[in-house]
Design a protein around this nucleic acid. Sequence first.
DNA 1: TCCTCATAACTTTTT
DNA 2: GTTATGAGGA
Length: 679
Amino acid sequence: MTLGMEILEGLNPAQKQAVETIDGPLLIIAGPGSGKTRVITHRIAYMVRVRDVLPYRIAAVTFTNKAAREMKDRLERLVGPHSDALTVGTFHSFCAQMLRRDGSHVGLSPSYTIFDSDDQLALIKQAMELADIDAKQFPPQAVRSTISKAKSILVDAQTFARNQQNYFEERCARIYHHYEELLARNNAADFDDLLMRAVQLLQDNQEVRERYQERYHYLMVDEFQDTNVAQYRLARLLAEERHNICVVGDPDQSIYSWRSADIRNILSFQNDYADAATISLEQNYRSTGKILEAAKQLISANGIRLNKDLFTDNDQGKPVTIHEAYDEGEEASFVIDEIARLVREEKMERGDCAVMYRVNAQSRALEEACLHRGMKYRLVGGVRFYQRREVKDLMCYLRLLVNPNDDNAFLRIINTPRREIGPATLDKLATWALKRGQGLYHVCDDFALSEVMNPKAAEKLQKFKAWLDAKRQFCFGQNSLQAVQELITDMDYEGWLMQNASSPRIGEKNIENIWQLVRSIERMLEKQEDEEEGASDLESVIKKLVLLDMLEQQQEEDDSDRVQLMTLHASKGLEFPHVYMMGVEEEFLPHRTSIEEDNIVEERRLMYVGITRARETLAMTQALTRKQYGEKIDTTASRFVDEMPQEDIDYLGIGIQKDEAKEDAVAEASIANLRALLD
DNA sequence: TCCTCATAACTTTTT
DNA sequence: GTTATGAGGA
């Protein structure tokens, strides 16, 4: 038993216990900075190297792609080459794979497409038209979130219809029904379906269930506080046979209830597995004493919580600072200038600094400040690559290649670039397709089409289909990448992008983006070739791409030299020596919508997450005025500031202002301050 | 059928 | 200050 025992070295007693407890249900409550990821990875390494568990039998599910990737990397180092056999991924990717294999039992053919939230919304709108429900009266967004919530607690259309409580829900029930039909017709699943169908699959199908239970003897769930009902049910089904399920989480870091994450899952876990062991990791190795104290005192304002006492042996460190700035521009300038100064004077690394904010919109002022000063930065998350218009368009072409029933993709690209096929034609096409009971694309070369519409239009449709069909032939052989490239050049997509861009620079950027997409396809094809001996096929690559698993990978080059900009949500699971938290104001943090919905506790947790990312220094900023809808509004300091230990905080007043505006700024700022005091 | 210009409505966080 | 929608002209 000496082999691999070094895995336990350097772990504290609680960590060691967590690593060694591999049989039976286990709940690990892991405070921030308590070495959670270390424990998970070491636990897996311990199973494999000491207890001789086959990597093949272990599954670890996380919440985000980023977390999954990081875990994979660490495991590679700890476990070695056998780590490839481990199943590590997000719930969604795990389910997507399961459904690709066995989805036929729940009505999904292997070539199914995954619809993202934009597709979802488009489909909801269609469903509302079918149900003859006015989109002005019932906002499609609201309908989508209602349906999404239903799915995340495993309520299907029939059940939903049975339990409707009011007029809105009655309308939603009808839309839900049509929506599901549309999904089926498109051979598609939305994000929530991935989970719900996977659960259905395991629940209704004994053979499949037993196969998966037999495959996975050990299951780990990371960020358990962020799982929703469907995800928890899935985990339970997988672990039903052996009960070797380990969940790791921290209720204080639950920040996704708006996505139906349910902290009660932790209680359910203790109920469902009465014999579960519970281990708390309470020693913080990350932050200074003062930072941890600030975090602890803040979160204690949340009242009833699972008992947990964080402590650290680290130095007390520097006080938390709070800076006021005149407006959001000055706020951003201050932060960036400060970072520049510390890099210059104290040899701080840019990559050691993270700037965090509540809403994505705040990143713009920051980006401008960075650009202006030549500060290198990386936007974590932000307007996501795959959501960019040109990337999505190209993706839709690819989707249509794989799944000709994908009407959403068809509609998106049929006239992009221009093919002079307008709404009138499409309307007729849709009617025809409905009559024939087939997809839009399929019906494009129907010879009878020229009788129900302008023959010229019919010809254009037919030409389009013939062209794409020709491309499809080359997609699945050796030259699939070439087919993609031809697709782009054939339609002079580059020219179209340039023409439509507001400036040549943006046009070039857009073009760069699509080639970046092509490059990641190329990389994935190569990778697949390595793994599966030559069997590279575009089809499976495109399906993975839709799950957006790999797209962000390439952006991660030399981060060490770049300031990291991100939302507080995106910061979860990360740590940085220096953290700047912007917009610490009422209406922002806590956010206005949360105040209205009376969900301050979650905002507090969000701030708690942000604070506990910091290792050495933490600086917060408040802009005294902020532009909203083009109008300047005075702000109030966040209530959370008062909830932190005042003795550990330095208030630094106005951080910076333009010289010519100085007097005005001071005057206005003090008025704003006075107002803040009066409130 | 496409394009331009005006106006309205909106903004939380993400797989 | 944006992005989604709509009316009206080419």
